[in-house]
Design a protein around this nucleic acid. Structure first.
Lengths: 135, 135
DNA sequence: ACTTGACTTGGAGTTAACTCCAGGTTGTAT
DNA sequence: ATACAACCTGGAGTTAACTCCAAGTCAAGT
């Protein structure tokens, strides 16, 4: 699979794919004799891994470390497991913020829609806060 | 409330608070006669608004626009409502990615823990993919 | 063989969101 | 009155994660 095909499949730019390879977010990609990237199934699994982790906000540095450990072999199973647990904790923490903010936004939007109908906008900050900060 | 107190309350730096004010993420803060920031209840509500939205990844530019509309008065109720709906859609989209990636991470962590026990690591990429990409 | 378009590299540039700094002012405790 | 910490401003610097570019190579069609 050419770089272009991979880009179209995952809606990503060639520059980003090459960048991922250069810094180690994915391992070195298979090439043709002429030196042109020719992504195998295996290569593509790494691309998917990178895209999934990045889209959940896992830092590039963390993915690089995971790939590095993976390439070192079975001695790093525990390290990799711990790294993933760390990533999971971070993703969960941010997700919680998103959930809280969604509640806040829903509260506000409801009040705004009411206000557009009635002409009166009044929300209760305390009530809303229960849905947000440390909420 | 001094800037320091606000910073301690919300675990944020003075530089960030001043930056938020400078670019318009929060309206101009009340000052003492000497020109030192003295946050009122009202000012603090805007700080909370900024922190909640930012922690859910709402771009600074969007918050600035919301504050700008707010300060223009009741003519902008509908614009503000639409802006919040846009923010909500974005937060929901990213949250979905987070949920998918959490499933993926849980799948992998389980496989790793199994592997650390048994010495055999083998996950099914297809099975896992069902939990991730467009999953 | 030649054009044309996609691919290559190393390195520089961009963007968002802070973060730091120098040089000056304010406020409080002795 | 004098330290001395905390505050102020405008502007420059930093960081992560891309994104772009120039100059050259590769490959498919005629």
């Amino acid at each position: 699979m050419t770089i272009k095909e991979v880009c179209e499949k995952y809606d990503i730019t060639p520059d980003t794919l090459r960048y991922y390879e250069r810094v180690g977010v994915i391992p070195e990609v298979t090439r043709t004799s002429g030196g042109i990237r020719n992504y195998t199934e295996e290569d593509i699994k790494w691309v998917e891994n990178a895209i999934c982790m990045r889209s959940a906000g896992v830092p590039v540095e963390m993915i690089i470390e995971y790939v590095r450990l993976f390439q070192m072999g079975d001695d790093t199973l525990e390290d990799r497991c711990n790294l993933l647990k760390g990533a999971k904790a971070e993703v969960e923490a941010v997700k919680k913020k998103y959930d809280d903010e969604l509640k806040r936004l829903n509260y506000k939007i409801a009040k705004y829609e009411e206000a557009i109908q009635t002409g009166v906008l009044n929300w209760d900050d305390e009530e809303m806060k229960k849905e947000c900060l440390n909420g």
